[in-house]
Design a protein around this nucleic acid. Structure first.
Lengths: 237, 237
DNA sequence: TCAATACATTTTCTCGAGATTTTAATTTAG
DNA sequence: CTAAATTAAAATCTCGAGAAAATGTATTGA
């Protein structure tokens, strides 16, 4: 994919503009669910939401169906839609499955990636580092930016893998885990360890050391599981 | 999940009745796509399909959205829906990802499964064997039955895995591979090797031999990849 | 007081028509 | 004869209203 590009494209392809109202509503709803504005288990009534998101009933319905694809919303027979519930068991499952897929994809990526891919990794890491600097300045509004660049970094890492399915599933699982990570971020902000781990991954990638890279990545992902474990059970609703 | 059940439930839980018109249309459309009635790449015009499936435009639209979840249909911006294209590369990706997920799930299943699970495996294998017997009688109408029981067998194998996400992704990939397998079945019918492989998997499972079971399962899945490779390129449209 | 039935309200699901965009065909200029 | 531009047709997307179903409430009887 990046074989022909001499110059690396902007680290993290920005999500193209939504060309339909349904997709726009889908994006907004997705963000609101991940941010916890619509808490897990909440009933999503079409009649109440259609005016808030300023779209028709059928349109909002489509947006909800799109969210079912991401497993952020569950549809029950004739009983409407509901925000997907969360649990510690579920997050453990998400994390372990993510490790399985992401390490496999990273291995392929290291084996198949060319120079342009390496450049993209370095670029994405740089973008992420800058966001971390701004984060330490206490500006809470930049946390959104950090989240986007963190996702972009993980995406670029496996972007050279030829397995579109691994990447697809990884995207879904990343969105899922993002919802849990937001909960843990209220208690403990992003530590410097995270930066060091990212740095270590980049080093291993550039050294083409599959063993080391997958090992660190595994630890890195599992660490967020530990962070979520620290959350008191009552927060998990 | 089966911990409390003293008696194994019917091998392969039959898909519960669709309670909404949209879901019914979704089922029919899905079958038609997998069976090749709507060939890969075909444009799916809502206006043409709504009378054929006897539902409204908005309803059929929802059914198409559900198919996007299964990646059997792709939606492009403001340009409608289209049957997902197929390619040898794609099937190779599907197969390898499926091996990754299904072996991991099988390992967990063997480690966590109880007696009831073993009984379910044996039962599902029996159902499958019977279907194979009927298949040799030349009755083509029973191939549909065999497909369902084959799917049920693979589903039961990993049913004791606590990872709902692995099972979820495996379901999606199985549906995908089914579309390719139909193409190969036109040329070479189900051989006896398949039965022997299933038997070997059951033996390894009952012996709780993770190494052997995953090894055979991997070979078993990869064999279908070889079968599809035999298909002349022009059939893949 | 509790359980079961019937009713009323709410919500979901479904349908057809209108507005916007894309696609194809025709025309016209170079 | 090619290519750009205009026009016509088809398809998608969107909306609001009506039908079917589910939830909650009130009533009745034991």
């Amino acid at each position: 994919m990046n074989d022909t590009a001499a110059v690396p494209d902007l680290a993290g392809t920005q999500p193209d503009e939504p060309k339909t109202l349904a997709e726009a509503a889908y994006r907004r709803l997705r963000r609101d669910i991940i941010e916890g504005i619509h808490p897990p288990g909440e009933k999503l009534r079409v009649e109440h939401l259609k005016d808030h998101y300023a779209v028709g009933a059928g349109t909002l319905r489509e947006a909800l169906q799109l969210l079912v694809t991401d497993a952020l919303v569950v549809a029950q027979g004739q009983r409407g839609f509901r925000v997907a519930p969360i649990s510690l068991d579920d997050f453990e499952d998400i994390t372990r499955t993510r490790v399985l897929l992401e390490t496999a994809a990273l291995q392929q990526s290291i084996e198949c990636g060319d120079d342009a891919w390496e450049a993209n990794v370095v670029a994405a890491f740089h973008m992420l580092s800058r966001a971390e600097s701004k984060l330490e300045e206490g500006n809470e509004g930049n946390r959104e930016e950090w989240e986007l660049r963190n996702q972009a970094f993980h995406e670029v890492l496996i972007s050279a893998s030829p397995s579109r399915w691994c990447r697809h599933f990884q995207n879904i699982l990343y969105l899922q885990s993002e919802r849990y990570r937001r909960l843990s971020l209220f208690r403990q902000p992003i530590s410097r360890d995270v930066h060091a781990e990212h740095q270590a991954i980049v080093d291993a990638v550039l050294a083409r050391d599959v063993q080391e890279a997958t090992r660190i990545l595994t630890e890195h992902i599992l660490r967020t599981l530990e962070a979520v474990r620290q959350i008191p059970p009552d927060v998990l609703s």
